[in-house]
Amino acid sequence: MTLALALEQLLNGLQLGVMLFLMAAGLTLIFGVMGLINLAHGSLYMVGAFACATVAAWTGSFWIGLVASLACAAAAGALVELLIIRRLYDRDHLDQVLATFALILMFSEGMRWLFGSFPLYLDIPPLLQGAVPLPGGTEYPVYRLAIIAAGAAVAFGLYMLISRTRLGMRIRAGESDREMIGALGVDIRTLYTVVFALGAALAGLAGALVGALQSVQVGMGEPVLILAFVVIVIGGIGSIKGALLGALLVGVTDTMGRFLLPKILALFVPPAQAGMIGGAAASMLIYIVMALILAVKPRGLFPAAHA
């Protein structure tokens, strides 16, 4: 194993982490402000990817597709919030889990109704095609670097939004005392719809960005959703900072585990078996990490004030 390969894998872990952050940020924001647990977040990710693929196919431009994915996911989020989610805020988590589980079934089958059963085509824009050289003589795809940059930009943007703007002030107020800001005359219903749509737009953005690298198909949101939950639980539910660190931790642990575990095992057993057992262990690794962290810190690394 060379240093260059290790560096490349570290970048891969970072990129996976950034992608998870885009999902986790919306989830954790929605939980922090509204106290809502939203299993249908993965469906909004799927909506973003489908919107991007469809519009990119019509217009021939990935960038218009990207804008469409933000708009469609935000619109879908706002619509779902207005029709359904707002009835769930004062319910217990059990009802929220069940209602959003039902939404997953409806979204998945609904998308198949609209778009058919075959995966859609979505390619990387020409500007971001290809690979650039890395120190150590290997190459790295431009697009993956762009995802890292996009994630960093979103993290910075969210930080500015929450710490510097009026909306951010209300979000912070909503996180610390929900009744109080209502009493202070803030239109809390609109605030909730806006926050939900913002979270949905972030999920849609993640879906569109990742859709160009993966397969745009029904059900694509579910594996990511579960990883995103692992991320926010590790980070502390409701904490954006926790989501960022949790996402990077999960991304790097997962990538390095898949890469290193079979190699370590190969020192002891034949390579074919090392591959299988190492693969099995690697797929469980992040859940083990999560259990360890929660055993020590039951409310995650950065517990939010009230949760």
Binding site: M1, T2, A4, L5, E8, Q9, N12, Q15, L16, T138, E139, R144, V210, L213, Q214, S215, M220, P223, V224, T255, R258, F259, P262, P271, A272, G275, M276, G278, G279, A282, S283
Partner: peptide
Amino acid sequence: ASEVYTQVGQTDYAAEIAQMRA
């Protein structure tokens, strides 16, 4: 060169592609 087993339903292959390159 190598025999690799990936997770069922895996969607990101960056780690495996890096190993292929090396």
